[in-house]
Amino acid sequence: MKYILSFVLNGQPVDVLAEPTDTLLDVLREKLRVMSPKRGCDEGDCGACTVLLNGEPVRSCLTLALSVAGQEVMTVEGLSKNGKLHPLQRAFHEHYAAQCGFCTPGMILAAKALLDKNPHPTREEIVEAISGNLCRCGTYQEVLEAVQAVARGEYAEVKE
C-alpha cells in the first residue's frame, strides 16, 4: 500500500508516495532523485547514506521513510547557501578529504552534526563522530584535518 509522505527536505516541504517498507534512502534516491546520500551497504554499516534528521545524523538506509513524516531532513544538497559552499565543504575540498568521493556527503554531514553541537571538539571527539562513516580510500587523516580547520575558524562563513 502506498502512503503520502510529507516532510521538509533541505528547507522545502515535499510530498511523495512511499511504501511502508521503503527506507528514507529509497525515497530520497529512487523517488526524489536526491543523489548525495549513497547506497553503500543498505544495512547501516558504511555510513555513506548518512543524512541529518532534525539536525541529528541518521542512517537513511535504516530509517523507515514514513517515520520522518513532518520532520526535517537535510542532505548535502541543502548545505550550500546561494551558491556559497559551507565551511566544511570548502575545508574538505582544500584538505583533499575526498578521494573517490563516495563517502564524502555522509562524512560531511556527520562532521556538521558534531560541530553544530560542539564547535570546538577534541581530536577524539571528531574521531568518535566519524567512526561510523567508512572511507575505504583511507582519507580519515585528511577528514580529521579538515574538520579541525573548520573548528579553528579557518573557514568562517562567508558573509553576504
Binding site: 548518512t50 534528521l53 541529528e56 545524523p57 541518521v58 530509517t63 556527520a110 563522530a129 567512526s131 561510523g132
Partner: peptide, 8 residues
Amino acid sequence: GSAAIRTT
C-alpha cells in the same frame, strides 16, 4: 553502534 545508529 555509531553516532548515527545511536540517534535512532
